[in-house]
Amino acid sequence: MEITEGVPPVINLTEVAEREKEEFEKKVSELIIEFGAENLLACMQCGACASICPLARVGFEWYNKKLIKAILIGMKEELLDDPTPWACVACNRCTEICPRQVAPFEVMFAMRRLMVEEFAIPTLAIEGLRSLYEHGHAVYMTGREARKKVGLPENPPSTDSDEKALQDLRTILKNTKLAELGLIPME
């Protein structure tokens, strides 16, 4: 996990800054702030958020604190291919613990939005979206047998068993930015 793809062993800050200035329309930090992480710049890199983030614990490379740092020095291309933001489980523990009210979770989600904008979505996430559109669940349900065993209805009372709800959800999705992007087929 030491040398991640995309990030060279030595980070050239001049190149990063120049690319940010010349190639992007806005600074990465400005984009992330626009996408919802309003308090991004208040981060002091204390690491509290990383200490409790499940992503950091299981070895994802660009967990909250580190992602914020990379954004602050103007990195973008290097981050776009990384799946970490999509693995965020939105537990919000980081938001509660942060002493600067940065809401790192918001940064994770803003990063997702940026990735979507840049068409840089890992297959993992596209699969999830496709499943969401088709079944109403980002992670398709397995283990129906198990549900039966513990006395639950085989099909959960969700879009899975309610055709109308599923159609409503699809209508909603078709009216979001997702449809504009055309990442997944939506008939």
């Binding site: 030595v10 980070i11 800050l13 001049t14 580190k66 990379a70």
Partner: peptide, 10 residues
């Protein structure tokens, strides 16, 4: 950069 764990130059 101790936060990123990498040498940097500029």
């Amino acid at each position: 950069d101790a936060d990123l764990g990498k040498p940097v130059e500029l």
